[in-house]
Amino acid sequence: MIEARGIHVTLGDKVVLDGVDLTVRPGELVALVGPNGAGKSTLLGVLAGDVRPGTGAVHLAGRPLASYAAREAAQQRAVQLQQQGLAFGFRVHDVVAMGRSPWHRTPRSVADEEVVAAAMVRTDVERLAERTFPTLSGGEQARTSFARALAQETPVLLLDEPTAALDIRHQEAVLGVARFVAAEGCAVVVVLHDLSLAAAYADRICILAEGRVRAVGAPREVLTEDLLGEVYQHPVRVLDHDGTPVVVPVRAAQEARC
């Protein structure tokens, strides 16, 4: 389990997170949604230990996250960042294999090649194994980074907009894998902009706005027209598709026809 309590983050003179609480349990996928600047990526950075809050604390597996050494933390949580940050010409296979570094010289290292190969298959990058990372498209880089996070085999998986550069097929595939990993017992947190994707795959959705949590709950509980219209400052319609909410914006042409 990963738990954040009373998280307050200020960057310069801007309050980015203001008293945020969030708990993610093993076996569930929680989506962080909200408008630009709501604090989604900052909250994910706090959960990862990459952003230190001014006040509040994160507990990972019952211990303060700040008490973990770097390698020990890497054995507990894997992170896929929105910006990939690899400028050197590593092969895709090598990038995915980097996910195994926390397990170097441990009994789990004997499975490195098997785990790396499986992660590449699950993310549809095995055919790119010999390509160098900088030559990949944005979507291919995102899938490679997702494979690296999977190969790390941690009980907590933190994903920052993993579908942003992907086509529809790969969006569905990535979130399908994230959903499967959660079903295997992992605690998964994913930042998403697509509210309908969040509704389709998340057990719970955390809606952030101006650094505060506006609602946390099952998709059908929190994805309401009134709340989303207020948070995003744009009217929406929430439709039901086989029991799953689908969120669509109200467009000027539609309002004129009404």
Rank of each mutant, 00 (worst) to 15 (best):
S145F: 09
A149T: 07
C186Y: 09
R251F: 11
H170Y: 14
Y68P: 04
V189Q: 07
V213S: 07
G99W: 09
E161V: 06
R5N: 12
P155S: 07
A256S: 06
V213I: 03
V188L: 11
P102Q: 06
A73K: 15
I2P: 10
V247N: 01
P26T: 11
E210N: 11
V33F: 14
R52D: 07
R131H: 13
D242Q: 03
R25P: 04
K40I: 13
Q83V: 08
A183E: 15
A97G: 04
F180L: 13
D21T: 07
V96S: 03
E113S: 14
I7H: 12
S67Y: 07
H170P: 01
V79P: 14
E28F: 10
V222G: 01
G54K: 10
I205R: 06
A142W: 04
D21S: 12
L192C: 09
T10Y: 13
L32D: 01
L60N: 00
V96G: 05
D226W: 02
R143Y: 11
D124G: 10
D226S: 13
V246A: 00
A200P: 15
D194K: 09
R105F: 15
L192R: 05
V250D: 01
L157S: 00
Y232V: 07
V248S: 03
G99V: 02
R71K: 08
P249H: 00
A118Y: 13
G62Q: 04
V110Q: 14
M1Q: 14
L22T: 03
L29P: 09
R131Y: 04
F133V: 10
L150K: 03
D18H: 13
V213P: 10
Q254C: 00
A66H: 07
G56E: 05
R257C: 06
T244Q: 00
Q75T: 15
R25T: 13
L136R: 03
A253F: 04
T42G: 03
D242S: 00
R122V: 04
A117N: 11
P155I: 02
G39A: 09
P235S: 05
